[in-house]
């Protein structure tokens, strides 16, 4: 079988293509590594974290000013090893949400913001050395939420709804300090293609309620929606339980329909981790009936 080489052509979106190539390349098995034997057990990690931090809300549909304030957040993650590609594919589901109360610079007006997100990712993973494990792949993300300004008239709220496909990388490094096991992890995600809801520049929700739609679903890419997410965590044991502390930086931005928006969340999170192994039985076990 022969392989046809890919010929690169000059393109304005070189960076974007590089990222797409990164996703595709990362999802292929590396030839230098032999696939690990398929384990009988499917290991699954569940983590639930609660956090608090600061939000920055900038929504030109509501105000030309940036609002800042505290937020509370919650995140639940499921990381599961699959049988695909000799067990080198790991799936990740992350559900998270936040609620914030932010004020304008003068302190006489508030905005309430809240959003729920779900991201499902597929990662190819390989070991680099010294226990460091790298993972890279793609994820699909959807989110819904709103920002409400407490003193605006016919533009009191900006609804948020988005669906995107992105690239994600992760590095996991287990280590020990005085025989105590720790696991450090860093994950970065970058949406690449997607769609989001937005009113037109001066369109009211009243008009939309009449059924007048005007480019309210917008195509998004890093040029008009440069968003990203960084998640740094440390797992540590206490009294036989595994806890996780972390920092989450969630940057969601858009520049569509003449409206500019950002939601920047910086959260410090803490929670617990549970590990499960689904044991596959080799043979059916017969239980004697007790009469």
């Amino acid at each position: 079988m022969t392989r046809t080489p890919l010929h690169a052509s000059p393109c304005r979106f070189t960076c974007l293509r590089t990222l797409l190539a990164a996703c595709l390349a990362a999802s292929l098995p590396g030839r230098a590594q032999q696939a690990a034997p398929l384990p009988d057990n499917r290991h699954t990690t569940h983590a639930t974290l609660f956090g608090a931090g600061r939000s920055s809300l900038y929504e030109t549909y509501l105000s030309p000013l940036t609002y800042t304030g505290p937020h509370l957040s919650v995140l639940h993650e499921t990381l599961r090893k699959t049988h695909w590609l000799d067990g080198r594919i790991t799936t990740q589901g992350v559900f998270d949400g936040f609620f914030c109360l932010a004020s304008n610079p003068a302190g006489n007006a508030d905005e309430m913001g809240g959003k729920l997100n779900y991201a499902h990712g597929w990662h190819y993973n390989w070991t680099v050395g010294h226990g460091l494990r790298l993972m890279a792949g793609a994820e699909i993300h959807t989110g819904i939420g709103a920002i409400y300004n407490n003193r605006n008239s016919n533009n009191p709220v900006q609804a948020k709804a988005e669906l995107d496909l992105g690239a994600t990388v992760m590095a996991i490094y287990p280590f020990r300090i005085r025989k105590t096991p720790f696991t450090a992890r860093y994950q970065a995600s970058l949406p690449l293609l997607g769609a989001m809801f937005s009113p037109r520049y001066g369109q009211s929700y009243y008009e939309m309620s009449l059924g007048n739609y005007d480019r309210n679903v917008c195509f998004t890419h890093p040029g008009n929606a440069p968003s990203m997410r960084h998640f740094l965590t440390l797992d540590f044991p206490i009294a036989g339980f595994t806890f996780r502390a972390g920092y989450l930086c969630d940057i969601r931005q858009s520049r569509v329909n003449g409206l500019r928006s950002h939601i920047w969340n910086h959260s410090f999170m803490i929670g617990y981790v549970k590990h499960f192994s689904f044991v596959k039985r080799k043979e059916p076990q017969h239980f004697p009936f007790i009469l």
């Binding site: 960076c15 890279a136 970065a188 990203m228």
Partner: peptide, 20 residues
């Protein structure tokens, strides 16, 4: 693979802020 990761991280670093 490492080059791809570097490219990804570089793209993250180049992500511009939308702010005023």
């Amino acid at each position: 693979h490492l080059l791809c990761l570097y490219a990804f991280l570089l793209a993250l670093a180049c992500t511009s802020c939308i702010r005023e």
